[in-house]
Design a protein around this nucleic acid. Sequence first.
DNA 1: CGATCCATGTAAGTTGTTACATGATTCG
DNA 2: CGAATCATGTAACAACTTACATGGATCG
Lengths: 185, 185
Amino acid sequence: MSVLRYILLGSLNYTSLTGYQLKKFMGESTFHFWYAQTSQIYRTLDELEHDGLVTSEIEEQEDRPDRRRYHITQAGRDDLHGWLMRPMTQLEMPKDKLLVRLFFSGQMDKEVLLTQLRLQRSLHQQHLTELQTVTRALIADTAARAPEMQPHTRLWEAARRQGELSEEAYIRWLDETIQLIQDTF
Amino acid sequence: MSVLRYILLGSLNYTSLTGYQLKKFMGESTFHFWYAQTSQIYRTLDELEHDGLVTSEIEEQEDRPDRRRYHITQAGRDDLHGWLMRPMTQLEMPKDKLLVRLFFSGQMDKEVLLTQLRLQRSLHQQHLTELQTVTRALIADTAARAPEMQPHTRLWEAARRQGELSEEAYIRWLDETIQLIQDTF
DNA sequence: CGATCCATGTAAGTTGTTACATGATTCG
DNA sequence: CGAATCATGTAACAACTTACATGGATCG
């Protein structure tokens, strides 16, 4: 079963949402460890409904398009909890396109390579800053407005912290590598 | 075009290899940033040959199964270099299933969660140790036996170093998070 | 004598991406 | 007045995984 199914079930387990809101929620909270296209979200919601893990109904709105709101069912809750209980006994290796490029760039022009690494550095720096400001503030805000969500906001903060540490390490590595290539090639 | 195509082209750009050897090579060198199933490798080699980026011929062997050895063509080299030159202007967000589980584990039993985090810690520790011993030795060995590959072995070491730094950061985060959950839930 | 290595694939299914399609409202 | 937000999807394609299938040689 796809991870996305569990992200949707997990989100709906907190509160009922529409496809659009689920997308927005992912863009604010899970984006640094899992993302999905809108098209995939709607398709997966259909599957979940077909499998009886969620139900939905149309909500009519004035001055805005009508929308379909999804609710988790007991079967959905059971499925989610079953997944969360199952131990992960294997590492999942991430895929990193930049490392692939670097690895095979032995015959490439040094300056081209350095430009790519510097561009990546600035992108990672941007992402790190976003985690440290926007995401941080959003978590604090949610914690303040919904104190009953405390167990969740603490875990959200833990996930944010992982992003922060891993971006810091990546930037440190990029700096090391840029230095190495400048000095020795 | 899939990244795997370029990994195969990039490897064949160093030397001619068989599907089996390409799989082995990936298992020794790129495994911590890109892996692929055997079935996918053979299929992709077919595609590359069909597109004229590689050629192949059967090599007969005594006492061992015959094998098909692949060679990169000039078109393959051009394709590879075109890909390596193209700048990467966007970050690629990794996907991390453990973070998904953690994020939605607000109602889970504390001990179940701790067990999962401790298991992950030991898996990451194993992987880190492998990078620091086996992979490190393999790079040193390759560098010693093929000094003309120096530009490549240096980049290989840079890629290995990324794995080391990122595993260290991940383990640090796991320790922090285990502590947090022990103390506050 | 069982496990691992050598060696290559097919078939089916799942997951994820990209492009396309529509249209009203609100904000700067 | 143009961009962003709200809102939902279909179609086609690309990438990746899992299960299956075979069979000799070598090593402990």
